[in-house]
Nucleic acid binder design. Structure first.
Lengths: 224, 224
DNA sequence: ATAATAGTGTCTATTAGACAATATCCT
DNA sequence: AGGATATTGTCTAATAGACACTATTAT
């Protein structure tokens, strides 16, 4: 019979990259660990209990630490360098959580920016109030991987829409794409590409409160 | 100070999907656990020791259990359902290892087949000597995810070439693609797409031993 | 010479992008 | 009316695929 306790076990945590887009900028919810044993800003996270699955752990952390429920999340990757946490051996399974910005009102949101183009990969920087934050652990690398993943999945998946409310204008979708890709897009071909995908449908409703001509509101077509 | 030992810890394993292509069929190296506490066929794997990183663990398992070195591998995903291993709580981080078929000569290679098209996703079947194998744990689902990942990365990455020797013919590349995609491809447009990618270069050498006209050998262009 | 496979040329359908023009709505 | 944005139309470049053809080599 296999003895699972024969060797000393690493700890397992999940960390959450809770992302949104505000005013055309990609944002991540970060926690300030100032005064903690590991100072710096970090992704929120928690340890995996032996009686909870990974998904349950994600939902627990979302609810307990951020007060969120029913958020779209998906696994990103696992990080297991030996010295990534100075407190001990911790393997972290990182999840990407995407939500509309209004859900995160009042939370500390840092702007995420990368110094590489396309899907080259590399670390990301987190900026709050105009200054670069010091990121704890390997979270700069993780946030870089987040951006890379978002860029890769953007135009053939629903990740772009998960960052928006249920009804949205095409301009808002374009702002999300521009924030993730880090470059400007032309409006006419972008519109067409979106509509040709067939993933969204017009609702017949229009935005209100804008200063000028209101745009039509679209919604993601339900799963087929 | 954080007490990492406050809660009971899950065990952490890595499992390897060691893949290759033989005679136009996608294959995985599987272990027969007959007579074991968890019978069925399974991916080779091992537990993560507290003093070894994930990559080191992968290399250890490759070397100890299969006798392989210098194999291209990359992380696939982590699996953490509570009851996925009847022996106890085991979280498994799965890696994809790709190698040319000659390296795996003499190992038990099962043909991997999926009942879904495109990148829909779902479980895979493993066939050896014409019969479906009973897969242990959640390894049918994992192998399905492997196929999905391979299909997704096939035409913009090097995964297709990692399954071939250093020098290969365009026909061999096409066989690899067909095995992974599960459908036939037309030769002329396939050749062109490959060459237009600019990822491979002709070597000036030609294959030998074939029954008819020898094809030129190509090689992957070194990283730029 | 023949069989079998390697490799090329041409055409078409689809898609992505640029640019110009028109439509609509708020102030 | 005027200004700002939404939306549409047309054109072009790049790409993917189908199909027919030529080239080369072992037997």
């Amino acid at each position: 019979m296999l003895d699972l306790d024969k060797y000393e076990k690493p700890s397992v945590a999940i960390d959450l990259a809770i992302m949104t887009v505000v005013e055309g900028r990609l944002k991540a919810l970060l926690i300030d660990r100032a005064g903690d044993d590991v100072p710096g800003w970090a992704l929120p996270g928690g340890f995996v209990r032996i009686d909870q699955s990974l998904d349950q752990t994600v939902q627990r952390v979302l609810a307990e630490k951020i007060g969120l429920q029913n958020i779209h999340f998906e696994q990103l990757a696992s990080y297991g360098a030996i010295d990534r946490d100075p407190r001990g051996r911790v393997i972290s399974i990182v999840y990407l959580a995407l939500c509309p910005s209004d859900v995160l009102a009042g939370q500390p949101l840092a702007t995420i920016r990368v110094d590489w183009a396309g899907e080259t990969g590399g670390p990301a920087r987190a900026i709050l109030d105009g200054t670069d934050l010091k990121l704890a652990f390997d979270h700069a690398q993780i946030l870089g991987d987040v951006v890379k993943r978002l860029r890769g999945k953007l135009d053939y998946s629903r990740v772009g829409y998960a960052l928006l409310p249920a009804k949205f204008t095409l301009r808002e979708v374009q702002e999300v794409h521009q924030a993730i890709l880090g470059r400007e897009l032309k409006k006419p071909p972008f519109r067409r590409k979106l509509l040709d995908r067939g993933m969204i449908v017009p609702t017949g409703e229009f935005e209100t409160g804008g200063a000028y001509r209101p745009a039509e509101l679209y919604a993601v077509k339900p799963e087929e």
